[in-house]
Amino acid sequence: MSRLDSPYAHLMGIRLYVDAEGREHLLLPFGKHLLGRPGSLHGGAIAGLLALACDHAMARETSSADAAAVQCLTSTFQFLRAGREQDLRAVASVQRGRAISTVQAAAWQEAEMKPIAIVTRKYRTGPGCQER
């Protein structure tokens, strides 16, 4: 499962950022390599950050012994606005369930209240979740 210390996170330049209220965000610093076409971020770059934000939040909720067993089952991305040539931030929240957990994340640039994309991911977290 992708984490902040993964080669993918390094490749993208994604890092952890703690705001004034102590809340964890992921930060994807802007670079030209993230553009899908002139002036707009590639949807995959946005989705990659959102997916990593969910994985990170899920890992925070899970003991290290269970972490290897956590599996992402589905991802649903909704793109709300074009991503501009700016840094992108994402924050995720976890709704823990007995067997299935739901993680939602939003990515924004100018203002947190104006997300450019959101995602809902389902994770299998219950006992025996390594079987498929």
Binding site: G43, Q71, T74, S75, F79
Partner: peptide, 15 residues
């Protein structure tokens, strides 16, 4: 023709 992704759903079948 330029387009924007509206919705993208993925089912993760295998690791």
């Amino acid at each position: 023709q330029p387009h924007a992704t509206l919705d993208l759903r993925v089912d993760h079948i295998e690791a």
